[in-house]
Design a protein around this nucleic acid. Structure first.
Length: 772
DNA sequence: AGCAGCGGCCTTTTT
DNA sequence: GGCCGCTGCT
């Protein structure tokens, strides 16, 4: 253990070896806080003899959890087994399923995402004859969400206007309906867990004893509900170790409250505080600029960030004529970095305020033939065909879920339209059941029902029978069989797989989902559905892909890149239009920029556009972001208001090679960015395709191995692997093929591995080596 | 019941 | 400029 401590600096060592009890680690960007957390866990296990299963570590994303888990395992090996490590929501999910008896929902509850929530609230608004134009679900959901994050029940909802009254009413009905659907939303997971711990001393004490040591990453982004959970869990020991940085608090709008740090100090008077100021990431120029930006915020402690690295290059400013040119300039710069200076494509990142901004950059990358990876936006799990399939699976798991029922009951169209649904709903209401229950009753051959519902009853009974069959399949068979049954029984394949390229993409997405299903054979449907609901954007960031990354500033938190481009530094973009007239929100926009700047290791480029397309289509003049004023000129190359440098776009349909020099301007020439005029245009083309999934962009699903391999659907289905063959797998080692067959155009091999048992693998992805 | 065509509405950020 | 929902036609 002492050896381990040696590779940490003095501040880090002290934080890692802190005595038990409430502890705050204030960690500047790039100061190795993940490292401190990892070693803290190792220290607890290795030096303080705390069993791993008595440790709970909470991270902000699943990806962060995975990374930390890997690092801890590397240090501790099997001694790390049993540790609870995950996001707040994942950990709450685990607790809630264990304690489901105490909840108003059953163990089979499903998690409603934003779309489901909106669908449900929309229904409620409709049923209550409220004007849908006036009652936008999203805006009410926002308020409901905020209330939940502050642990305010519908009854406690504060009322000071007519709108508040409506919100309260909708909130109350919305909660009732969630329970009726045997569902909860993201916020409920926190709220129910809090209440479980608050109201049942036995539960509180059980978990508090189990989690003798609790560690929390990104503490500045916890909300009140999360804080309450932590406090409850720590109630018997106070061993609460939190790491955070108030300057990186960027989720206020989601209820996060960096004042939880103050709350913590107040609630735990004896809390020890450690500071990590040594930066290992960025050049001093970058850090100085970051500090210049953040120092303008009030109510914070100034931190003097020092780097171990060199002073580094100045920050480059690009000012383009319009947003399209901005995108082209940034992508050209990346292209030059890759091709002229031999930089690795993965070194680059483009960060923006809103997802919508990614589009022009995607187009520019395509023009240049450069592959890219995109975080978030239209995620894989947000795709229609994926959500459709998940709706079927959710309905099978939880027939009370009316949102999923409505979504999938007529997929593909089978004559169950609005009218049929209405009569199903009427029947449900009349018998005090849910629609799903009525369907299952019909399937069970309830003659009275069938009779009273006439022709519609017959249609519904057909679907009900399928549902019943699927539910039986789910109980006795492999998960993937259920998946396949649904696809076959509904005729979903021909429905989405039309002749178009899009149709093919959709089908391939479905196959990809199927291969995810294969990974959940042991964990089962409930766990599969839960992880599907809890994957975050960052979790879908493709790894091991050498390509520039595009992501929002929010998604960039916790990451680092050698060269960072922060784009759209205009008023109303960054800071965002919605934030400019509120001081608190403005401060958060500033922190957002700070987070972005501090992601950069060696080189930082800021860009803006003089004209920008408004959401409506027309072009608007822009003003330079006020934040640019705060970056001292000595750190900057190019002026925020200066002239753009001359770009040459290689005549790719956009080439006015260069811009009018005589445009008004304060900036002087030659100070412009270094993307000089016209490097050759001969490279880049066709080096990769980024658009396999159309404009929706990628995720970790971008070009997976099986995609390159043409699917085989025609007979005869020849399998590559044969029963009895000895094979080798990267993770599982040696195994014997038990069977292999073509399912949906992809070969599925069942292999028996020593020490791992029977595994079902997708042949094109598993990369099995045939030994004999 | 289902599709095509038209008009109104947007855009923060996410577990 | 694009998505969603509504209307009216088959």
């Amino acid at each position: 253990m002492e050896d381990l401590l040696k590779i940490l600096n003095e501040q880090q060592q002290r934080a890692v070896a802190a005595p038990p009890g409430p502890t705050i680690v204030l960690a500047g960007p790039g100061s190795g806080k993940t490292r401190v957390l990892t070693y803290r866990i190792a220290y607890l296990v290795g030096a303080m003899n705390v069993p791993a299963w008595n440790i709970l570590a909470v991270t902000f994303t699943n990806k962060a959890a995975r990374e930390m888990g890997d690092r801890v395992s590397k240090i501790l090996g099997a001694n790390a087994d049993g540790i609870w490590l995950g996001t707040f929501h994942a950990i709450c999910g685990k607790i809630l399923r264990s304690e489901a008896d105490l909840l108003p929902v059953t163990r089979d509850y499903v998690i409603f995402d934003q779309d489901d929530q909106e669908a449900l609230l929309k229904e409620i608004i409709r049923e209550n004859n409220l004007d849908e134009k006036l009652y936008r679900p999203a805006s009410y959901l926002n308020e409901i969400s905020r209330a939940k994050n502050e642990l305010i029940t519908p009854e406690e909802f504060p009322i000071s206007s007519f709108r508040d009254e409506q919100t309260q009413r909708l909130y109350r009905i919305y909660q009732e309906r969630l329970i009726k659907n045997n569902a909860m939303d993201f916020d409920d997971m926190l709220v129910y867990t809090t209440r479980l711990l608050d109201e049942y001393p036995i539960v509180r004490e059980t978990y508090s004893h189990k989690f003798e040591h609790i560690l929390v990453d990104e503490f500045q982004d916890t909300n009140l509900a999360q804080y309450a959970i932590l406090k409850n869990l720590a109630c018997t020991h106070n061993n609460l170790y939190v790491v955070g940085d108030e300057d990186q608090s960027i989720y206020r709008w989601r209820g996060a409250d960096y004042r939880n740090l103050n709350r913590f100090k107040k609630d735990f008077k004896d809390a020890k505080i450690f500071l990590l100021e040594q930066n290992y990431r960025s050049s001093q120029n970058i850090l100085d600029s970051a500090m210049a930006v953040i120092d303008r915020n009030k109510n914070r402690t100034h931190k003097q960030l020092e780097t171990v690295r060199e002073k580094g290059e100045k920050i480059t400013m690009i000012v383009a004529e319009d947003d399209r040119e901005e995108a082209q300039a940034v992508v050209s710069a990346i292209r030059d970095g890759i091709h002229m200076r031999g930089q690795k494509p993965g070194n680059f990142a483009i960060m923006y305020r809103t997802n919508a901004q990614s589009r022009l950059f995607e187009e520019a990358f395509r023009r240049e033939g450069i592959n890219y990876r995109l975080v978030g936006a239209q995620r894989f799990y947000g795709r229609r065909e994926v959500k459709d399939m998940l709706a079927f699976l959710r309905l099978v798991h939880n027939p009370l879920d009316e949102i999923s029922l409505r979504r999938c009951i007529n997929l593909p169209p089978r004559g169950i339209g609005a009218k049929t649904l209405e009569s199903l709903q009427a029947q449900a209401a009349a018998s005090g059941l849910t629609m799903g229950e009525v369907l299952l009753d019909l399937a069970h051959g309830r003659a009275d029902l069938l009779e009273s519902m006439g022709r519609e009853g017959a249609k519904l009974a057909t679907f009900g029978s399928m549902l019943l069959k699927w539910r039986e399949t789910a109980q006795h068979n492999r998960l993937v069989l259920l998946f396949d049954r649904i696809v076959v029984d509904t005729g979903y394949e021909p429905y989405i797989r039309d002749k178009s390229e899009e149709g093919q993409d959709r089908w391939e997405n479905l196959l990809e989902l199927r291969s995810v299903v294969l990974e959940y054979e042991e964990e089962g449907l409930a766990n599969f559905l839960e992880s599907m609901a809890l994957v975050s954007d960052q979790d879908t960031l493709p790894e091991n892909v050498e390509a520039p990354t595009m992501l929002t500033l929010h998604a960039a938190k916790g990451l680092e890149f050698d060269q960072v481009f922060i784009v759209g530094l205009d008023e109303n973009i960054l800071p965002h239009r919605r934030a400019v007239d509120d001081e608190e929100e403005l401060a958060e926009e500033r922190r957002l920029l700070y987070v972005g700047i501090t992601r950069a290791k060696s080189r930082l480029t800021l860009s803006r556009a003089r004209r920008r397309r408004s959401p409506y289509g027309s072009y608007e003049e822009t003003l330079a972001s006020r934040f640019l004023d705060d970056i001292p000129e000595e750190h900057l190359t190019g002026s925020p208001r200066g002239l753009p440098s001359r770009y040459n776009y290689d005549n790719r349909g956009y080439g006015r090679g260069g811009y009018n020099d005589s445009l008004f301007g304060e900036g002087s020439f030659g100070r412009g960015s270094s993307y000089g005029s016209g490097y050759g245009s001969s490279y880049g083309r066709g080096s990769g395709s980024s658009g396999k999934r159309g404009s929706s962009g990628g995720s970790r699903w971008e070009n997976p191995a099986w995609m390159q391999q043409k699917s085989v659907t025609k007979d005869p289905p020849k399998t590559k692997y044969k029963a009895g063959q000895q094979v080798k797998h990267a993770t599982y080692g040696r195994g014997v093929v038990k069977s292999s067959k073509i399912e949906f155009g992809d070969e599925t091999v069942e292999v028996y591995f020593e020490g791992y048992g029977l595994k079902a693998l997708v042949a094109s992805m598993a990369k099995l080596e045939v030994l004999r």
